[in-house]
């Protein structure tokens, strides 16, 4: 028998999970957790509902806080995808949120839940890493921010404690930055990605001021190689450079093989989709 408790405060929710001592889990939209429960990959006695939390400022909102874009822990992927703020400041995140699962999933699933699930074959994690976003968690006593790139540690595994509640995501807003996300699905259009490529860049006088390329769905965690992208700094993002970066990423990646593609195929899809994502940001910078 599973008990469902609704919590009004973050502290109550954290306490409920902590008291469960491994048998309780947070549930937001429930789209991922219910599947895991059905497949008996997760066993719980208590589900701690967090949609009712009322004491976290901005829990259900998307707002600009100075030079940070805040997305609350109760915000659904559909809300992220539809937000004018996100579309304006972090179009890659809006794009990624718009291609997770299907419309029914996106209407229920939260961005915070997506992070906590740490599904290697999901779209938002790579984007959050590429945007240098921070995940803000509440441990019952206080809040802390963890860089997204430090959150994802392995397949379905994060550096967060089981009783850490994700209360929001903070995306730094950088003047002149552009971003793009390409989801490549090898089967249905509604499949999880075979390869996801998130690119974030800033241009100064037509040259690359900063560049981040992060690959999702190819291994346990989002993959990035700053030593490759940093070589582009100060240079024009022209076709040969984009092809070189794509080739180097394809060489660097150590892809898994699964039902969505072999390691060989994923490597080739990294090559093609990194190049295409770079072309997208280069084009948006030209606009």
């Amino acid at each position: 028998m599973v008990t469902f408790v609704r919590c009004a405060t973050a502290a109550d929710a954290v306490a409920a999970v902590r008291d469960g001592d491994g048998t309780a889990k947070f549930v937001g939209g429930g789209t991922a957790l219910v599947l895991l429960l059905q497949m008996r990959l997760v066993q719980v006695d208590t589900l701690v509902g967090v949609r009712t939390i009322g004491d976290v400022p901005g829990w259900s909102g998307i707002e600009q806080r100075g030079n940070v874009l805040w997305i609350g822990g109760g915000v659904t992927l559909a809300e992220v995808a539809g937000s004018a703020l996100v579309r304006g400041y972090a179009p890659s995140l809006a794009r990624a949120a718009s291609v997770v699962g299907n419309v029914r999933v996106r209407n229920a699933a939260t961005l915070a839940g997506n992070i906590a699930e740490a599904d290697y074959a999901s779209d938002p994690p790579a984007v959050l890493v590429s945007l240098d976003a921070s995940v803000v968690v509440h441990d019952g006593a206080r809040q802390r921010a963890v860089l997204a790139r430090d959150v994802f540690t392995d397949f379905y595994t994060t550096s967060l404690d089981e009783s850490d509640l994700v209360i929001g995501v903070a995306v730094p807003l950088v003047d002149g930055s552009v971003s793009a996300y390409r989801k490549f699905a090898s089967r249905s259009m509604e499949d999880r990605p075979c390869v996801g490529v998130a690119v974030s860049a800033r241009f100064e006088d037509g040259a690359v001021g900063a560049l981040e390329v992060v690959i999702g769905a190819v291994s346990g965690t989002p993959q990035r190689w700053p030593e490759i992208t940093e070589r582009a700094w100060g240079r024009r993002l022209a076709a040969p450079l984009m092809a070189t970066i794509a080739d180097r990423y394809a060489d660097a990646v150590d892809p898994i093989a699964d039902i969505r593609g072999s390691a060989w195929y994923r490597r080739e899809m990294v090559r093609v989709n990194v190049r295409r994502a770079l072309e997208e940001v280069a084009a948006s910078a030209d606009d």
């Binding site: 599947l35 497949m39 299907n102 249905s188 509604e190 499949d191 039902i259």
Partner: peptide
């Protein structure tokens, strides 16, 4: 339907895909 050593490897509609209206 993918078999490995006699086991069905994709007995769910995430691992076994059917077309969505987008396809």
């Amino acid at each position: 339907v993918v078999y490995d050593d006699g086991q069905v490897m994709n007995p769910n509609l995430s691992d076994y895909q059917i077309p969505s209206i987008l396809d």
